[in-house]
Design a protein around this nucleic acid. Structure first.
Length: 576
RNA sequence: GCGUCCGUAGCUCAGCUGGAUAGAGCAUCUGCCUUCUAAGCAGAGGGUCGCGCGUUCGAAUCGCGCCGGGCGUACCA
């Protein structure tokens, strides 16, 4: 990465200057933690390092320091200059040519650190969505689904090994509620005069949403022989649960979210792991009884209160299984666990980490990304969402808005921000939708590349003219790329090429910070640089060498845009 | 009350571990299609960075205290 390269250049130059006693009272080189930046005003240069912070040790003015360091900066990769306490670098054409060469040779691996020495490869388990199988996804789930899958793509692309998991909360009282709700819907289908309780508290034991009506119909069709009045309620529970799971999985697939495993809480219980972990905590003396319940001493590891792990009625809490689940993740050999949770679960972090520590695992290897929730905006007004009321489901949203726009909208904001999802806005396929702007750039690039090797039809006289270059010539240009070719267009494409180079830094930083929105920002910036270039420079032109130079640039843009869009899970259309 | 996230242009948001004149998109206004897709480009206007104090050569950024909003604060999941 050029950023690192220039930082390294400055640090080396400082060392040399210190050794030659050129930096005032500075007699030894310490790691100074200098910052490389991109000047807003490009007249200064393409990159800059502020060395003012050396003034304290050197006891001389920043400009003098900068000039002393400048003496040791010399390379054909750049020209360096000084203004004030800043050392400015202008990238040479040679360096720009290297970048294009790198993109063209690495192709779909451009931006990846897979083979880089900087990569500390980790085996990561990323868990997200993990919804109850009690109903369709709501819009909030869509945020975790989009962000989680994009984060997985990002971390994989960067070079980590990533395993994606969905934890199914298919054990516990909510499944009973689901079965009971299905029973009512079936009886309604049979014409009985029955309904969900009108009392609000009673009603909380049911899922009165319409979505169980088709499930009831399907049940009657497949199980005409079963008497719903007298049958084991478990049959209804299982049927409803399977239906819900299937519908969730189908949606995820269409939303380009691909889990490696759906981990069933029920299976976890059956495996005996939950009970085993309970025993382990008990044997270690971390449990105690109070008011008929069993409590876990989570305060011992920083939680603000102890937590019930077995209720007075003998059943487990949600936490009990979650402890076993997270311990099991580590036991399966993962170096790092990343969970995406809604901000409403924030109180859970301390207790889960406490339990991991109690069981002898390092809680720092569990990262919980807390996502703020999604507000749905309809007609300019916020719509409250409740699982039990009629709601806008993720299905509805995707159908109206499309997978690309829905994903992009979910991904483009920092996870710390409450997301206002304005349906009307996202539906518009106009300028207000940045995803079209980016896809349009891609389609335009593809169009140019097509035109470069296609013969052209003149609509006035019906004659066709020869293609600007043959397919062989084109392939030869790209596959046996001579970097000198690009020098022909570096002067007007400099900003664009530097933006392509920046992709590597963006990937590294995004992977480190676990952010996806930074990829969205980048892809918009790259598209903008391209559109700007496009409007003032023709790619296909009479100057053959210039055309080759620009075609190579177009291919580099195409590759980089595609790599970024693939991470986001947004399609890259060749035509629009 | 406590914990946590947020408060930057009319709107939606960037601003990386403090650094050159606080940025982008949308909206508003002005230009640009006989040549590769105008879903585009070029330009203009628009901000006491919620408020106050502190640390620093330097604060939107760090610390403390307020103000305003979201979420949480269960023997629910």
């Amino acid at each position: 990465m050029l950023k690192d390269f220039f930082l390294n250049e400055v640090n080396n130059a400082i060392k040399k200057a210190v050794l030659s006693n050129k930096l005032g009272q500075m007699t030894e080189y310490a790691d100074l933690n200098l910052i490389i930046e991109k000047p807003k005003n490009t007249d200064f240069g393409d990159f800059a390092v502020n060395v003012s912070s050396l003034a304290r040790n050197a006891k001389i003015a920043p400009p003098l320091i900068a000039n002393s360091i400048l003496e040791y900066l010399n390379s054909d990769k750049y020209t360096a200059s000084v203004t004030g306490g800043f050392i400015n670098f202008k990238v040479s054409d040679l360096t720009l040519a290297d970048t294009i060469n790198e993109v063209l040779s690495l192709k779909n691996k451009y931006g990846s650190f897979e083979k880089s020495g900087e990569l500390k490869k980790e085996k990561i388990l990323l868990e997200y969505v993990s919804a109850n199988p009690t109903g369709p996804f709501h819009i909030g789930h869509g945020r975790w689904a989009a962000m989680g899958s994009a984060l997985a793509n990002l971390l994989k692309f960067y070079g980590h090994e990533v395993y994606q998991e969905f934890y199914i909360n298919d054990a516990g009282s909510q499944i009973q509620k689901l079965g009971n709700s299905l029973k009512i819907r079936i009886l309604q289908e049979l014409g009985e005069n029955i309904d969900f309780p009108s009392d609000e508290i009673e009603r909380k034991n049911f899922y009165p949403g319409d979505y169980l009506i088709p499930v009831a119909k399907k049940f009657l069709k497949e199980h005409a022989d079963i008497d719903v009045h007298s049958c084991d309620i478990q049959i209804l529970c299982d049927f409803a649960k399977n239906e819900m799971e299937n519908c969730q999985r189908k949606l995820l697939e269409g939303f380009r979210v691909n889990f490696d495993k759906f981990y069933s809480e029920l299976d976890l219980h059956k495996s005996g792991k939950v009970e085993a972990r309970y025993k382990e905590l008990k044997d270690k003396g971390f449990l105690y009884e109070q008011d008929g319940a069993i409590w876990f001493k989570s305060t011992q590891w920083g939680d603000d209160q102890d937590r019930v792990i077995k209720k007075a009625d003998g059943s487990n809490t949600y936490l009990t299984a979650d402890i076993a689940y997270h311990a099991d993740k580590f036991d399966r050999g993962f170096d790092r666990l990343i969970d995406i949770w809604g901000a409403d679960h924030h109180g859970y972090i301390a207790r889960v980490k406490a339990s991991l520590q109690a069981l002898g695992y390092n809680p720092d290897n569990l990262e919980v990304l807390l996502g703020q929730l999604v507000n749905l905006i309809v007609d300019g007004n916020e719509v409250r969402m409740g699982k039990r009321k009629n709601m806008v489901t993720l299905d509805d949203l995707i159908e109206e808005v499309g997978v690309d726009a829905t994903r992009y909208w979910m991904e483009m904001r920092n996870i710390d921000m409450t997301l206002d999802f304005d349906i009307e806005l996202a539906k518009r396929s106009t300028d207000e939708n940045p995803v079209f702007y980016v896809q349009y750039a891609y389609a335009r690039v593809c169009s140019i590349l097509r035109n470069a090797i296609s013969e052209k039809l003149n609509p006035e006289n019906g004659e066709t003219s020869k293609a600007p270059m043959t397919e062989n010539e084109f392939n030869n240009l790209i596959n046996n790329f001579d970097k000198n070719i690009i020098l022909k267009t570096t002067d007007c494409a400099k900003a664009l090429i530097l933006k392509l180079e920046e992709f590597k830094s963006v990937i590294a930083l995004s992977a480190k910070n676990r952010t996806v929105y930074t990829i969205c920002r980048y892809v918009q910036e790259l598209a903008q640089e391209f559109h700007s270039f496009y409007n003032s420079n023709r790619v296909i032109c009479d100057d053959k060498e210039l055309m080759k130079s620009r075609l190579a640039l177009m291919v580099a843009i195409k590759i980089t845009l595609k790599n970024a869009l693939d991470i986001l899970g947004v399609s890259a259309p060749e035509r629009m």
